[in-house]
């Protein structure tokens, strides 16, 4: 009886370990996986290209999502204000254009041009990168700080606390986190949630 219950506990523990292992969502403190993806200008961009920066504001975003659109100008602002402080924005569109045609590479080029993106807008071709980060939606920010040759996740989540109206924002999560990191501290908030559009993959049904 006792052996049996010990065995059950062991089995459950193993199952739980697998369950957690299957869940690849990065946590704060984890090393950010490197990637090489095609930018809207046709050139390849890797995370490791930023080895001379303090960090990277990695944003999973896209063309079609109304929440991404609401925050789009603020993503541009982030790059304008923080690229010069060595915290540039890198944007990745994780959606499958066969599911959302408006998120295809050509449409991305158009959007980047129209809005005057000052940062790379990369296409996650084959959708291999977003699962490594555990991004689930657009927009979804991963603030990465460089430690020598690797980047670690310092903050995950929303850009700020008001998607509707930039003038009514009371907490700028990403900016606060960068300021704290610049001051040699850990971010005061390491995770903040927001509604976003689920990343579009082909349906199983």
């Amino acid at each position: 009886m006792r052996t049996f219950s010990l065995l059950s506990i062991a089995t459950i523990a193993v199952l739980m370990a697998f369950a957690f292992k299957g869940d690849k969502t990065l946590s704060v403190g984890d090393v950010a996986p490197d990637f090489t993806l095609k930018n809207v200008d046709g050139k390849k961009v890797s995370l490791s290209d930023y080895n001379d920066k303090k960090g990277v504001i990695l944003v999973f975003t896209c063309n079609h999502c109304p929440f991404a659109i609401k925050w789009e100008d603020r993503i541009i602002e982030l790059d304008k204000n923080y690229a010069k402080k060595d915290w540039p924005v890198v944007a990745i569109n994780p959606n499958d254009p066969e599911v959302v045609p408006n998120d295809g590479p050509e449409e991305m080029k158009k959007r980047a041009k129209e809005k005057g993106f000052t940062f790379p807008y990369l296409f996650d071709e084959g959708q291999k990168i977003f699962p490594k980060y555990g991004a689930t939606k657009t927009p979804h920010v991963f603030l990465l700080k460089r430690y020598k040759k690797e980047f670690k996740v310092e903050y995950i989540g929303a850009i700020d606390d008001n998607y509707q109206d930039a003038s009514k924002v009371t907490t700028k999560y990403v900016e606060n986190a960068i300021e704290d990191l610049e001051a040699g501290k850990k971010p005061r908030l390491t995770e903040a949630k927001a509604i976003g559009c689920s990343i579009k993959v082909k349906q199983q049904d």
Binding site: Q164, D165, A192, A194, I195, G196
Partner: peptide, 20 residues
Amino acid sequence: DPDMNIWIPKVNEDWSGAIP
């Protein structure tokens, strides 16, 4: 309710905020 970081975890701790 734009202050989503307040209410999303109240619905469910594990919810990332993606819909549906």
